[in-house]
Design a protein around this nucleic acid. Structure first.
Lengths: 243, 243
DNA sequence: CCTTGACCCTCACGTTGCGTCGGGCCGTAC
DNA sequence: GTACGGCCCGACGCAACGTGAGGGTCAAGG
């Protein structure tokens, strides 16, 4: 790092940028080295390096090269609005990134120990996620995610096992024509409501969204929701009778 | 949306993609419509639309077009590792985005009500942020951010006012040669330590990093840290004497 | 039959910020 | 003298389209 002016390779090493990047900055006129040797070598002075460090600093904030140029080349430029614009934009992008991570995390967790997952299963699950996202607000989804972490994956699998059994039992009672106020049906209703409550975490909004989804969609997660409608009515009656 | 096959414009409206995008997918062979009319119009069948929706689904996860192609075109493809790779990558990017947002937020907040900010001030502050980031771990910075929000901006400005005054008083006592165990110096030491404590929030690690920074850097935020070294020793003696 | 307007086609260049060649000159050490 | 590494310029490549230019097609209306 002996005498200024320095050649391009020195500058590259010093700043961590690539030689090509410095060529590029020169080419677009963002940083033109003050001198050229007789052989055509770019020669950078201390002032050039200072400007380059400013460029690097502004780039760290995610500014585009043209914005960096605007900052450095117009002496009375006030970067405040630029920063605020960038902040808003960055926050948006971060939100999008966060949601994407959530989705990926869910998918990764969903098949945590599974060896191989087929593309069909993946697409199926994405489709379900999209359907679900249609009915819950982002905040509700966040709530559900937290709740899912609270109850643990083991319990979730337990419940996923239990649901179809419970539905079978309810269907049986319905077909037998059992009175909703009978003790057997009451017990089923209590189990039903308990599972729902475990899912919603007692949040009324989430339960509302869940019901809206059940009434609008005809199938999800392999369950025929249309066929569930009468069951829900039946259980609803039993629950009402219990009170 | 009458009879399949549909023309490109219909498909575009239906999927929310642009016509150009569909052209592009055709060009790279990701989605070639099953038919062409005699006039050369692209004609998409229901199967084409189904594939397109799969493409859109996978793109939502942030997959590159080539990855989408790999998923859809090799029948025994298992996307699990792809998802995990993507998740790791996405988390990294989100972390970077978060740090960038933090920096921008700090800058925006730093000049909250100021009308115009010069580029020099901006660059100066970025430089300080870089120096600070050299000495604190990301977790510590997060802690400091939270702490800053707790104490409020008004108090921060108060402290920023108070520091130079306190330093002046300490310097005066030093030059007078006052005994560190004297009551006057003890009082100064108590004020000094109190301010430090208010900054660190009582965190030993942060205080350590702060001291490292003070000993390594020669100037920050317009304060001559080299000149502060003897003052810190002096206060240290006074504090030790107090105990 | 002609026009109009919506829709479609195929090039083909622009975008961002460089990475990565290829072919050839320059500088220094052995 | 020559070998090796640094530097030059020019040009293509990248991801995923956007945005024209210039021109055909189709259905309805005058």
């Amino acid at each position: 790092m002996r005498p200024p002016p320095w050649r391009i390779g020195q500058i590259a090493k010093r700043t961590g940028l690539s030689v090509r990047t410095l060529h590029w900055y020169d080419e677009i006129g963002l940083l033109t080295p003050s001198f050229r040797g007789e052989s055509g070598y770019r020669l950078y002075t201390a002032a050039d390096v200072a400007r380059l460090q400013q460029i690097v600093s502004l780039r760290q904030l995610g500014f585009a090269l043209e914005e960096v140029r605007a900052c450095l080349d117009s002496p009375d430029f006030s970067p405040l609005t630029l920063i605020q614009r960038h902040l808003a934009h960055s926050r948006d992008r971060m939100e999008a990134q966060r949601r994407l991570c959530d989705r990926l995390e869910f998918l990764a967790a969903h098949w945590g120990e599974t060896e191989t997952v087929s593309v069909e299963e993946l697409l199926q699950t994405i489709e379900e996620m999209n359907v679900i996202a249609k009915y819950y607000s982002p905040e509700q989804l966040e709530q559900l995610k937290v709740r899912g972490e609270q109850v643990g994956k083991a319990r979730i699998r337990q419940v996923e096992d239990e649901w179809p059994k419970l539905m079978d039992e309810v269907r049986t009672e319905m077909e037998k024509g059992s009175d909703p106020s009978s003790e057997v049906v009451q017990a089923l209703a209590r189990r039903w409501m308990s599972l729902i409550h475990e899912f919603t975490g007692g949040d009324a909004g989430i339960e509302k969204s869940l019901q809206t989804m059940y009434s609008q969609e005809q199938s999800i997660h392999g369950t025929d929701l249309k066929a569930m409608q009468p069951m829900m009515d039946y259980i609803g009656k039993a629950w009402a009778a219990a009170k």
